[in-house]
Amino acid sequence: MEQNNGSSFTGFILLGFSERPQLELVLFVVLLIFYMFTLLGNTTIIALSHLDPLLQTPMYFFLSNLSFLDLCYTTSTVPQLLVHLRRADKSISFGGCVVQLFISLGLGSTECILLGVMALDRFAAVCRPLHYTVIMHSRLCVLMASASWFIGFANSSLQTVLIFLVPLCGRNKIDHFFCEIPPLLNLACVDTTIYESEIFFVSVIILFIPVTLITVSYGWIVRAIFRIKSSAGQRKAFGTCGSHLTVVSLFYGTAIYAYLQPSNNYSQDQGKFISLFYTIITPMVNPVIYTLRNKDVTGAMKKVLWRVLTPDDWVGKTL
């Protein structure tokens, strides 16, 4: 990367919310609480999907993958933000910035693809119920999840290399709370049109192909649901698919706003709060959205809590 006067480049300063010092303590408390709820909610989903045999299905396999993604995604940015909110030193090393961008972008890209894969799973469950277990067999589920991770991190590798090829000419103050593409591009001292076009093209592929897949899948799903004669069956199908659509709307809406708008329309303040939304709010509410009306998950939670609270009774029954 090109620098001024051949000086050594050691790292960046993440300005974060330093221009609003009165907000930093409030943000620290709120984000710490949100982060703890994110850890608790997503860990619970992962644990339940492994502990309860009734939840060892393709749907909950993908859901536990999504929860693991959310845990990692939040952890890649929020702990550092919490430290910076309570310290005057808001620096991050060059290598740390590269790693943070690579990991957070890889996890975000993987989630984009995984949400599309989950729509395919819902399509098979609702539109092909009699063949669901044959279509969505365990080997295919593992293959689809693995492909999501591979494509997500392949995209991250490409975009991370592209962004750090941009000459910064000694600029090192990032007006953001973590290393992300739009604020890093703002540091460039050259015309970034070519870089923006390349990143825009890749982002369109990563974002809109899964969105198209989700739209087509749910078109067939809605059609199939209205053919279900049982009102209880319709409610269950709408409840399960509605949860997925809510998560999709929250995640894709903020991601499209952050990555697919022209750079001259990009507001740093809006960008920071949008980034807060998809790095902490969405991962926190995802477990709530999936469990609030899901009787399988709430039933599994009650059974696990019963085992923990009455271990003697459980042991006696099993013997």
Rank of each mutant, 00 (worst) to 15 (best):
N5D: 12
E24N: 15
L25I: 11
F28A: 15
L32C: 10
I33D: 01
Y35C: 07
M36F: 14
N42T: 13
T43V: 06
L48K: 02
H50D: 05
L51C: 05
D52Q: 06
L54H: 09
Q56A: 04
P58E: 03
F61R: 10
F62H: 11
N65A: 11
L66F: 10
L66K: 04
D70M: 07
T75M: 06
T77M: 13
T77L: 08
V78E: 09
V78D: 10
R86L: 15
D89S: 12
K90Y: 00
S91P: 01
F94H: 09
G95W: 12
G96S: 06
V98K: 14
F102S: 07
I103F: 12
L107A: 08
S109P: 00
I113M: 08
G116T: 04
M118W: 05
A119P: 02
R122P: 05
F123K: 12
A124T: 00
A124Y: 01
L130R: 12
M136E: 04
S138E: 02
W149V: 15
W149E: 01
I151M: 13
G152D: 14
N155C: 12
L158D: 08
V161W: 10
V161F: 09
I163G: 04
L165E: 13
C169P: 00
R171S: 15
N172W: 06
I174F: 07
H176Y: 12
E180T: 02
I181F: 09
P182C: 10
P183M: 04
L184P: 04
L184V: 14
L185D: 05
L187T: 11
V190H: 04
E196Y: 09
E196H: 10
V202W: 01
V202G: 00
F208R: 09
P210D: 05
V211L: 15
T215S: 12
Y218K: 03
W220F: 15
V222R: 12
R223E: 03
R223A: 02
A224P: 00
I225W: 10
K229Q: 12
Q234G: 03
R235M: 10
K236R: 11
F238A: 03
T246E: 04
V247E: 02
V247I: 15
V247D: 03
G253V: 06
G253M: 02
T254Y: 07
T254A: 15
I256V: 15
Y257N: 07
L260Y: 08
S263G: 05
Y266L: 12
D269V: 14
G271R: 06
K272A: 11
Y278T: 08
T279R: 13
I281D: 00
M284I: 07
M284S: 14
V285L: 11
N286T: 14
N286S: 11
I289K: 08
T291G: 08
D296Y: 09
A300N: 02
K302G: 09
T310I: 02
P311W: 06
D312W: 12
V315C: 06
G316M: 13
